[in-house]
Design a protein around this nucleic acid. Structure first.
Lengths: 147, 147
DNA sequence: TTTCTTATTGCAAATGATTTGCACTTGCAT
DNA sequence: ATGCAAGTGCAAATCATTTGCAATAAGAAA
C-alpha cells in the first residue's frame, strides 16, 4: 500500500548517479545507504549524523552537495516545511502532498485527485497553468475515542 | 470584489498596536504607512527601501522587529514562498491561498471551499485535525488565444 | 596494476535572511 | 516638564546552506 515516497535501493541510487557520469565515492556510498534505509523525511543534519556513525569522516558539506546532485538529477525531492530546514525524500513515485504532525514533526504523504483537479481548474480560470504546487496540512493528532 | 488580503488603513494598524500597549514611534508610523499603501506582498527589504524614502533613518532591524510584532498581534501574515524571503500581507480577511506567478513573482489570492473541505476530510480520515495549512500554486501565464 | 586526469572531498570562510546585545533615544503616563 | 521602560540603530551573532581551495581519490587509459 506504500507507494508514493517509495524508498529506493542503494544500488538504484548509485545507478542514477553513475548513469549521469558521476563517481561513486566512499562518502556518497554512505549517504546513499542512509537514504536507502528510507527512515522518514530526514534533513541534512540528520543524514549527516546517521552517516557519521558509519563513516565519521563524511562532512556536512558533502551531504549537502550530494543532496543537491541527487535533486538536480531528479533522484530525490526537497521539501521546506514551515520554519524548518530542507527535508528530503526519494523521488519518482507519484506526486503527493503532505500532512505534517506539528507535535512530532512526522510527515505523512497523501494525494487527492479531486484537489489536484480543483487546483488545475483554479489556475486555468485565472489564465495560468500550474508549474508546480505544494499543499501542506499542519496537523495535530485527535486524541480521545473519536474511533 | 477585493476582500481577502484587504489592506488596512495606517490608523487601523496604529490602533492595533496601541491597544496592545505598544508605542507608536516615528519608524513604526513610517512602516505602517507603507503597509497601508498595500502594494502587493512585500518582503522586509522592499518595505525597508520604501520606508527609507520617507525616513532614511529607519533601520532594517526595525522593519523586521515591527513585522514580528505585527505578526504576533495577528495584524499581518507572513508567507514564505519557494526559496524566497518572507513576504507580508495584512491579516484579518478570510483565509485564502496563493497563486505565485513564477515569472513575475506576483501573488494572486484565491480560495476554494471545496478544497478546504477536502483537506479537512483528508486530515480527519487519518485521525488528525488541521492546525493550519498552506496551498501554493506556482504558475505561468498562459499566452496565446486561449481566451 | 600503475599512471594520470579531474571529479570529489574536508575544512574554513562566505552567504543571505533574520535575530539579538547593547548603549543610546524617545514615547507618553504622571 | 519628567522619568523610565519601550523602542531604536548598529554591529555582531545565528542558522541553514553554499563555496573557495588545496589535498585526495575514482576509474579510464596504458
Amino acid at each position: 500500500m506504500e507507494a508514493m515516497g517509495e524508498p529506493k535501493s542503494q544500488e538504484r541510487y548509485e545507478d542514477e548517479l553513475r548513469s549521469a557520469g558521476m563517481r561513486i565515492t566512499r562518502p556518497r556510498k554512505t549517504i546513499l545507504k542512509i537514504l536507502a534505509e528510507g527512515e522518514g523525511h530526514p534533513d541534512a543534519m540528520t543524514i549527516f549524523h546517521r552517516a557519521s556513525e558509519i563513516d565519521a569522516s563524511v562532512s556536512l558539506s558533502t551531504v549537502y552537495r550530494t543532496m543537491k546532485v541527487l535533486e538536480d538529477r531528479g533522484a530525490i525531492q526537497r521539501h521546506v516545511f514551515e520554519g524548518g530546514p530542507s527535508r528530503f525524500e526519494p523521488a519518482g513515485g507519484r506526486h503527493h502532498d503532505h500532512l505534517i504532525d506539528t507535535e512530532t514533526g512526522e510527515v505523512i504523504e497523501f494525494r487527492s485527485d479531486k484537489i489536484e483537479a480543483l487546483q488545475e481548474e483554479i489556475a486555468r480560470s485565472r489564465g495560468y497553468e500550474i508549474v508546480s504546487h505544494r499543499l501542506e496540512l499542519y496537523v495535530r493528532k485527535i486524541r480521545g475515542r473519536k474511533r
